[in-house]
Design a protein around this nucleic acid. Structure first.
Lengths: 132, 132
DNA sequence: CTTGTCCCTCACATGAACGTCAGGTTTTAC
DNA sequence: GTAAAACCTGACGTTCATGTGAGGGACAAG
């Protein structure tokens, strides 16, 4: 599989895939002409990388974690790192939950009949069209 | 309260506070000499801003949300935006949970006795000191 | 053998939320 | 009234994961 196909399959840009390789996160064989060729499992690897990026990990951290995921490294240090990242994600979830709660409160207030939403609606929409 | 005190109280840098003002998120009165003066409730406002930043919202989005939080704007559009952001946070939490689950699996594997962790430990630590 | 499509390597650009330094003013404390 | 501390406005620097050409090979189809 060449880079364009991998990009299509994963929904990740070609540029991003090259960047992953540059960061040491994704390896590829090269054809005689220098073009990258990937195995089928590269798709899953890309998904994993994306998942970890989405979890707020940096390239560097992912680079450190991947050997553990591949079960190639298993030391007290690596296990501590895994737990540290997991705890970071935990804290991030807690923060997100707080923010969601805050938004829910605002939503509840804005949707309660007492906030006079209907009257506010029609007026505000007419008067502030450009804002929204 | 001047900017330095607000920075100390909130743990946010002076530069960040000026940035918030530049983005329209935080307002301040000015002394005759041009220095910013904040009311006590600015502390809570800064905490709120930080919370929303932590939830992954951009300055622009926060700028749009704040009037709703302050209950100054309440239109169908604004309520839709609130719900949209809430749902975005929801999806982000889901993603984070997936990533955490994945890490937990790796952790479980690396800590299971079957992975031969003790032998791997001592060897790996001695052989790969520079890596870690 | 050519054409079109895909791919290559630089290498500079981008956006967000600040950090940091310069050069100058204001406020506070003695 | 003077010096230190805090503050002001630019304005350029930083980090990260890409976007975006430029200029030039690689490869399948006809």
């Amino acid at each position: 599989m060449r880079i364009g196909e991998l990009a299509t399959k994963t929904g990740v840009s070609v540029r991003a895939l090259r960047y992953y390789e540059e960061q040491g996160l994704l390896s590829a064989a090269r054809s005689s002409g220098g073009q990258r060729h990937y195995l089928d499992d590269a798709v899953d690897r890309v998904y994993l990388i994306q998942m970890l990026y989405a979890a707020g990990l940096s390239s560097r951290t992912i680079l450190d974690l991947l050997p553990c995921v591949d079960a190639k490294v298993n030391t007290p240090q690596s296990r501590a790192m895994l737990r540290a990242e997991r705890d970071r994600i935990d804290r991030q979830i807690t923060q997100l939950r707080q923010a969601r709660k805050r938004l829910d409160e605002v939503i509840a207030l804005s949707e309660s009949p007492a906030s006079g939403c209907t009257r506010t609606d029609t007026n505000a929409v007419r008067q502030r069209t450009t804002v929204w």
